[in-house]
């Protein structure tokens, strides 16, 4: 089975037609969580520190276990699996945001996650957040200035009055989500990763954002999409990776993998 993959990759490497953009090689990701249940009291904790024991609070979560695949230019790859199967973790590892425990990810250029939520501040106006978010994603000031109006128009924030000059904490949750998506989608990416971003906003905005994602897909070399909605996977992806408990269960054309996945989840 592993042979099948290598056949394709090796074959394409020699013909030079299919250019790999992301290669995951036996990737393992382990989270170390400091929170969690702690037994014992303060003195017990102190004793652990003094003896330099790994404190009982640190628990390891093996989120991705030995995943290997090769993605090529022009592919749109869906990631499916139940909650906690390691899909988002895998995306972060591809983006180089989570260091692997073992194994490697090779990428062409800098893959980026579609999302700037963490960089935005609720106390600032929408306007300043557009600029801040753009800078955080690595856009230049000129690029932001150029795209500012289209970001605001796309978000539709100003349709009901001049909201862009108000602090983001005054926005409804839908408005804030729309602005966040609009900022995130303003940048062009070599390798783009989208984590369930399709579900934001009202019907009209969802339509618009799906169209924008198709556009981004055309511009980007490779797109990864995490979603729990099989329909959006079917609409946008031509290949699907199915993860379960951090392991790659299946990797193949969308129809086949989704059929197997649906059979599995139905039972």
């Amino acid at each position: 089975m592993a042979d099948n993959t290598t056949d394709t990759t090796a074959g394409t490497a020699t013909t030079g037609e299919r250019v790999p953009t992301v290669i995951a090689d036996d990737l393992h990701i382990v989270y170390r969580v400091t929170a969690g249940r702690q037994r014992g009291n303060a003195t017990a904790a102190l004793r652990r520190v003094m003896r330099r024991e790994p404190s009982g609070r640190v628990r390891e979560v093996h989120a991705v276990r030995g995943v290997s695949f090769t993605a090529h230019r022009g592919e749109a790859i869906g990631l499916i699996g139940s909650n906690g199967s390691g899909k988002s973790t895998l995306l972060r590892a591809i983006a180089g945001l989570l260091p692997p425990e073992s194994g490697r990810v090779y990428t062409d250029g800098q893959p980026s996650l579609l999302g700037v939520n963490a960089a935005l501040m609720n106390d600032l106006t929408g306007e300043r957040n557009v600029i801040l978010g753009g800078l955080a994603m690595g856009m230049s000031r000129e690029q932001i200035k150029e795209r500012y109006q289209s970001i605001v128009d796309f978000s539709g924030i100003n349709e009901k009055g001049d909201f862009i000059s108000l602090p983001m904490r005054t926005y409804s949750s839908g408005m804030a989500a729309r602005l966040r998506f609009s900022i995130a989608a303003a940048k062009d990416h070599d390798v783009l990763m989208i984590d369930e971003a399709l579900a934001t906003g009202d019907k009209r905005f969802q339509k618009r954002s799906e169209a924008r994602i198709r556009e981004l897909r055309k511009e980007a070399g490779t797109v990864f999409l995490v979603s729990h909605r099989n329909r959006s996977i079917r609409d946008t992806c031509d290949r699907v990776l199915w993860l379960e408990k951090g392991e790659l269960v299946m990797d193949g054309p969308t129809d086949e993998v989704l059929k197997a996945y649906e059979a599995e989840t139905a039972s």
Binding site: M1, T9, G66, S68, F69, L248, G252, P253
Partner: peptide, 26 residues
């Protein structure tokens, strides 16, 4: 994508050396 189904076992061992390219070489 492809003509074959890449259904894989969980371990997903690196490609065997020899005629095939390893991930690092690719």
């Amino acid at each position: 994508m492809s003509e074959t189904t890449h259904e894989r076992a969980t371990s997903a061992a690196p490609p065997p050396p020899g005629e095939k390219l390893s991930a690092a070489e690719l």
